[in-house]
Design a protein around this nucleic acid. Sequence first.
RNA 1: GGACACGUAGCUCAGCUGGAUAGAGUACCUGGCUACGAACCAGGCGGUCGCAGGUUCGACUCCUGCCGUGUCCGCCA
Length: 579
Amino acid sequence: MNIRQILNEKVSAAMVAAGLPADTNPAVSVSNRPQFGDYQANGVMGAAKKLKTNPRELAQKVMENLDLADIASQVEIAGPGFINIHLDPSWLAAQLQVANADDKLNISQSEQPKKVVVDYSAPNLAKEMHVGHLRSTIIGDAVVRALEFRGEQVIRQNHMGDWGTQFGMLLAHLSDKLAHDEVAETALADLEDFYRQAKIRFDEEDGFADRARDYVVKLQGGDADCLALWQQFIDISIHHSEEIYDKLNVTLKRDDIMGESAYNPDLPKIIDTLMAKNIAVEDQGAKVVFIEEMANKDGEPSVFIVQKSGGGYLYATTDLSACRYRSFDLDADRIIIFTDARQALHFKQVEITARNAGLLRESTAYDHCPFGMMMGSDGKPFKTRTGGTVKLAELLDEAVSRAQTLMADKIADFSEQERAEIARKVGIGAVKFADLSKNRTSDYIFNWDTMLSFEGATAPYLQYAYTRIQSIFKKAGVDATQLTGNIMISEAQEKALAVKLLQFEEVLDAVISECTPNLLCNYLYELASLYMSFYEACPILKDGVADEVKQSRLQLCQLIGKTLQQGLDLLGIEVMERM
RNA sequence: GGACACGUAGCUCAGCUGGAUAGAGUACCUGGCUACGAACCAGGCGGUCGCAGGUUCGACUCCUGCCGUGUCCGCCA
């Protein structure tokens, strides 16, 4: 159920009836002020300008043809030609009733499910996951969940960095460790440390660099022993990532991995295709695509190298291959890629080249969704005091332990197991919400205190709202499934909640089309905030509350609880009965 | 040099296809717990939306120029 969509259709019909062209945009939006109603249609003014007529008179004509019986209690013209729509409380109540009775909260399902390939997380397996991987991982996962909730068919693709020259030095180092009777799991327990050791040997130890390069050649040549060693490394590194996904409550599984190495056999064919179509040309020994579509003012084309002069392939080649695989083999209607903004130019080049070369069908949408880097409080790229990257695992552990400390006295009488579980949900939720609630494609400031804060617009606020609802039901001794009577909307707080609850689908649509989970964060915070106000203003279990009012408000609480839980679940944030 | 982002309250950030008086959180100040859970609520303070033009009934939003910040740009990913 999408109120805006319904109103857009109704206003559009009225516009046509008033003599306006069928393609006139009704421009229905949520009103930003209570006196302007719940929704407003702004399309009349634009239409009047085109026809050079008086906008207020036109608005009058449209309004006379506007059929909002039952839906609206009041419709009025204001200002230069706004049509303000006040929704009818009993209509709202009836809609809430429907939503409350439906497993999917009356969120409509996609009639013709789209096949959507979502490429996210994509850690570099040579190293441990650090805070920079947080955004891609959790934003991607939230969008994936939203798509599936609306009934789209999602194919997750974890484009892990499991190939490349750096593996030469890592395998050489690992080989030595194993020769000294070390077990791979132990040697690779701290990947960051392992990488550092290998790098030092590469830079300083005589002969090691040559051995590293030798390993690269053997690896690319398909040497069996070398591949086995590589596979061992990859497996352990993937296991590290899986632990993080588990902690983060992210849905990525081993089957979703489609690493860079998977495209390796296809790369020569990609180059052949580009050369055959004369899209790539040889230049200074390398194979290069000159992209005229992206030329600068002087007409100089953008340069895109697809094969090195030595014959080696680059990530450009891999991403072109991924285009072909996803568009043709997987038959994707849409491809969404979440990486940081520094790769924006690259993916623009990939798309244009892929489309020109027929590696990407016209019917496949290609959306690169960039986001900014994580900066320190000094505005420079975020690092630890010693200049290293902050491990994601450490950030998450710190969040949980902070939550544990903060809640120590509040949940002192809970069982040990329950305390640990609550601390985990609150701590991880806080980290995820802090990141997911930001939309900027530009860089953003990382701050331990803000990220692990439990006050204000944070995940714990939403979780707290949820526990308050559960607490009411427990106190009332009522089974939530045994409520009677109808929802009634009388108080202002109730109406505000009703409208907000029914906007869930509008928000999900925006999250999916723009790949912006922050809209869902904002929505859930607003919903929880309205609930808190309602909670103060509208008694439920207190003496003197009529039973039908009590039943109505309990049902309202129930739907709010379900919506909060569902919304948070789409963000991969868990709720609890008490905290 | 070129391309692309971004510049909104002290701080961190919202602001939907251009709409009415630019919104939250935080910090600071004032109230509210003999309690449906105060991790909360009600209220106050706080902005020349980087600057200057332009488009129009109307601009934080679109266009141009400038200033500032950042990223990327032929053999890393």
